[in-house]
């Protein structure tokens, strides 16, 4: 009978490993496409931890299966010997995992530093795309400096810094006269060779804890009430273009094939901190434009829609 259970555990462990192997080849089962500058480093850490845990998981499961198989069928009346323990063995299995944990914590420092240390954040200047993201139950309200404001920055190098200061006012989300507003859609452009196009987000929340999560960028940051938390990223790829049919910018654009509707090019924005009953539907999209010119075209388009003085049908 115990041989049966050993076989069951053995089969399950083999199936688990097989599932991992299969998942790597089935679209949508493994990690989504990675498009940010620091995402590869985050992925490397993930794989490293995955391999370490896989190794020890397989090791312990194999020992378990072996022992059930070997010692399971005891003769009737057989008394199990009492084993007090093994000091040396315990020291080893405490020190080795501790050493591995210390190793992981040392190896992740560089990646964490790149993504989260404020000294690595882009200094607000004209090449940086500043965005205010305000989370609330259950949507993302988004605000950009308007086209006129950005034109003023060309003459006034302190402009971007001043905009940041106003954006970081924590209590009310005031904004400025010519800001461009949107909801559930973050627009940015692909970083160019000179490094222009890094995105600096000022993250706030109006009610409870939320978490700003861009899975395709391997980026996650909690939004905490009363705080303005900076978040930065830069993207290596693009996914949106003007669609003549729908008369607006549409994501899911695969620039290799020139086709819309490619699942690999739809990049989600999700909330990753349980925030209420509709938490799972607090979703947005990330739109990355080909270059700054295309982004500016969208910004003008969005501002024009925001300044509409006539109903759409009468225009």
């Amino acid at each position: 009978m115990h041989k049966f259970w050993a076989a069951v555990f053995g089969v399950i462990i083999v199936l688990c490993i097989a599932l991992f192997v299969v998942a790597a080849f089935v679209p949508g089962w493994w990690l989504p496409k990675q498009v940010s500058t620091f995402g590869d480093a985050a992925d490397r850490l993930f794989y490293m931890i995955l391999w370490i845990t896989t190794f020890f998981f397989v090791l312990t499961e194999a020992l378990l299966v072996y022992n059930i198989w070997k010692f399971g069928d005891a003769k009737p009346g057989y008394k199990a010997p009492y084993v007090h323990g093994n000091h040396k063995l315990e020291v080893i299995w405490t020190i080795v995992p501790a050493g591995i944990l210390v190793l992981i914590s040392v190896l992740q420092i560089g990646t964490w530093e790149e993504i989260k240390y404020t000294k690595n954040f882009p200094r607000p200047d004209i090449s940086v795309n500043q965005i205010v993201v305000v989370a609330r139950q259950w949507e993302w309200r988004i605000r950009y400096p308007g086209p006129e404001e950005q034109k003023r920055w060309e003459r006034d190098p302190k402009g971007p810094e001043n905009w940041r200061k106003l954006a970081e006012f924590p209590f009310e989300d005031f904004g400025q006269y010519d800001d461009v507003h949107d909801v559930n859609a973050v627009h940015a452009w692909m970083m160019d060779e000179r490094g222009a196009g890094r995105v600096l987000i000022h993250l706030k929340t109006r009610d409870v804890l939320h978490s700003f999560f861009l899975p395709h960028l391997r980026l996650k940051q909690d939004a905490v009430p009363g705080k303005v938390i900076p978040v930065w990223f830069a993207v290596n790829d693009w996914n949106t273009a003007y669609d003549e049919k729908s008369k607006t910018w549409v994501d899911g654009f695969n620039h290799n094939t020139g086709q819309f509707g490619d699942r690999n090019f739809i990049w989600d924005l999700a909330c990753a901190e349980f925030c209420g009953s509709r938490h799972s539907m607090m979703k947005g999209r990330l739109y990355i434009h080909k270059d700054r010119a295309d982004f500016n075209k969208w910004l003008d388009f969005q501002q024009k829609a925001q300044n509409a003085r006539m109903p759409a049908a009468a225009e």
Binding site: R136, Q137, W138, E139, R141, V183, N184, A185, R278, M282, K283, G284, R285
Partner: peptide, 14 residues
């Protein structure tokens, strides 16, 4: 689609 900013009605833009 756009929600009502300033109330509990969120945008269902997706």
């Amino acid at each position: 689609r756009r929600g009502l900013d300033g109330t509990a009605m969120p945008a269902f833009s997706t």
